[in-house]
Write a protein that binds this DNA or RNA. Structure first.
Lengths: 241, 241
DNA sequence: CGCATAAGGTCAATGGCGTTGGCATAAGGA
DNA sequence: TCCTTATGCCAACGCCATTGACCTTATGCG
């Protein structure tokens, strides 16, 4: 049986580390986010995190069951950060769009962390709050339960999928050793036009466009589709007459 | 300077390993795919792969520059497998849909491998061929270069993004130790209805739906959008009259 | 106010990992 | 048949996460 982890809410004794810093779940997650940004998505290790916190690596196991548990906490922090200060306006389309863009932006602003967490289900507080919020927007807009769940599924998966993909390509260049960095220039831009005529003719445009995200476009397409399926009031809308 | 890697095409001497098996790039990738399926996405290690091949782990470095290079080769094999036997029909929408579904299906059929590779740019032969094919479909349909590149970007990113996300959730249950497996049942289905009313009312539908992929729907939405932007011939299409 | 308790920090060790440099051997061209 | 060198093997290095035992000190109770 490993050491039990005390939930943050029940911590009483806050014993400072050898060098005087007082640990907390929040401080550890913040430090981990900083390390990920500085050392890349593979640069978060228990040893280094301990070093950065001036604590023994094994101390982390007083706060998290393991590195995976810490990873989930990091992911939940990103979601929390995404919806910090957000409040629904009651206009479902605007609210949904805002939630999607905020979540996507939060992940993309911490790409190295997002790579580790975007496709995980944390089951922690902030994730639950976000899910509840999306479902509430749709239910509040009058969608029946089945449609709500279907739309929620497409919406959240599309958001997380693009967040993960965009984060992955942003995270690679920071780890300068990863050779993927300039593969578009070193490989795609130099292909022989006789064997790859279509790539060759598009190379310049490709290298320019592939660095941007296709998420906003895809999101609006989804919202358009949702709008068309939305339950209307009995009255016919005025524009028709 | 590390040992140089001899390209597969130039290999002359095929010296058998101690136990008699003859190595090749293809055999190594196949074995790696099998190990990934059996041991999960974190179960591919140089030592284990060497064991499975009856070869010393360091031998792998005669074929790949490192585990990362091997990972890219695995990804390229998935793309190759996706388009194996495929040929364009000349109907752009049908062809594009087929390519998307094939790539998605290939990744999802090797989820543990897909997790490692779906968001990587390999720059290898099969990837280049797939990109060339997609660009050719769009150019052949008459799209100008700029539109072609824009559509290609949205199409390929959406395909890979969903492939990565769907693969990730499929890969987790196989590694039975990962606790994410039944988080939907252990957490979401048991939330208190007073704090999470929307999740609670949708729990049953959510657990049923979240195991399926939203990709086909999203793909058709994209194709609809593309269809509306397609350049028409000068003549007005017959249905209008 | 002081003491017992146990929370929480530290230490040392284990077994795994990727990777490398040196070495041995046998394949295949001459 | 011999030489060259491609290719397999070995041993070692410095990482990694994780654990169990130990120590120390903050806290709550009497």
């Amino acid at each position: 049986m490993p050491k039990p982890v005390v939930p943050e809410a029940q911590r009483r004794r806050r014993r400072p580390t050898r060098s005087g810093t007082v640990l907390s779940e929040e401080l550890i997650v913040e430090t981990a986010l900083r390390m990920l940004r500085e050392h890349g998505s593979t640069g978060l290790t228990a040893r280094r995190l301990g070093l950065a916190l001036d604590a023994d690596p094994s101390t982390l196991y007083r706060y998290f069951r393991g590195m995976d548990d810490l990873t989930l906490a990091i992911g939940d922090a990103l979601i929390g950060q995404a919806l910090e200060g957000w409040a629904p306006t009651g206009q479902w389309r605007h609210d949904l769009r805002e939630v999607g863009l905020r979540i996507h932006a939060a992940y993309v602003s911490h790409p190295q962390a997002a790579v580790l967490t975007a496709s995980r289900v944390t089951g922690r507080a902030n994730e639950l709050a976000a899910d509840e919020a999306v479902l509430d927007i749709l239910r509040g807009a009058g969608f029946p339960l089945r449609d709500t769940v279907r739309i929620y599924h497409a919406f959240i998966d599309q958001t997380l999928a693009f967040a993960a993909l965009d984060a992955a390509s942003l995270a690679l260049p920071s780890a300068a050793l990863d050779a993927d960095e300039d593969k578009w220039h070193s490989t795609y831009a130099r292909l022989p036009a006789d064997r790859y005529p279509r790539i060759a003719e598009a190379a310049r445009l490709l290298t320019a466009r592939m660095v941007t995200s296709a998420y906003p476009t895809a999101l609006d397409m989804l919202l358009d589709s949702v709008d068309r399926q939305r339950p209307r009031r009995a009255a016919v809308s005025p524009e028709r007459f």
